[in-house]
């Protein structure tokens, strides 16, 4: 399971990376915004995307839309971990095809719960 973590704050990337390692996901890579993440994703090999929303150059919501527009990435599970807390934004992300949405600050348990839920849904027929 190869996971890409996208956040412009390196501190948050490290936190998410550590939490994922605790959950048994050791194969992670990092990108600092959507515009660096997208080429990495297009090169293939990623099974899961964790992304922030508020980032320079290319925001998480635009990355999500770009991922869904790309045939090879259309079904890639995307979990948003962001401080964006407006209802309309959550609806927007849902409409853009996000698989899970976590608001910061979050806990290790929340991350585990959402990841489990995403995989449950994918594995369910």
């Amino acid at each position: 399971m190869k996971i890409l973590i996208v956040d412009d704050f390196s501190t948050m990337r490290r936190i998410i990376k550590n939490l994922l390692r605790e959950l048994g996901f050791n194969n992670t890579m990092e990108a600092d915004d959507g515009s660096t993440a997208l080429p990495m994703l297009k090169n293939g090999g990623f099974d899961f995307l964790v992304t922030d929303w508020n980032m320079p150059n290319m925001e998480g919501i635009d990355l999500l839309r770009a991922v869904r527009a790309e045939p090879s990435l259309k079904t890639l599970p995307v979990l948003m971990v962001t401080a964006e807390a407006k209802r309309e934004q959550i609806v927007e992300a849902a409409q853009a095809g996000v698989n899970g949405y976590i608001v910061k600050p979050f806990t290790a348990e929340t991350l585990k719960e959402k990841i489990d839920k995403i995989f449950e849904r994918i594995e369910a027929p």
């Binding site: 956040d7 704050f9 501190t11 936190i15 605790e22 508020n54 910061k104 600050p105 290790a108």
Partner: peptide
């Protein structure tokens, strides 16, 4: 230690 790690999320939030 996990608690200490999670406490560092302030840097992202205050940074924004």
């Amino acid at each position: 230690m996990s608690e200490i790690m999670m406490a560092q999320d302030f840097q992202d939030l205050t940074g924004q």
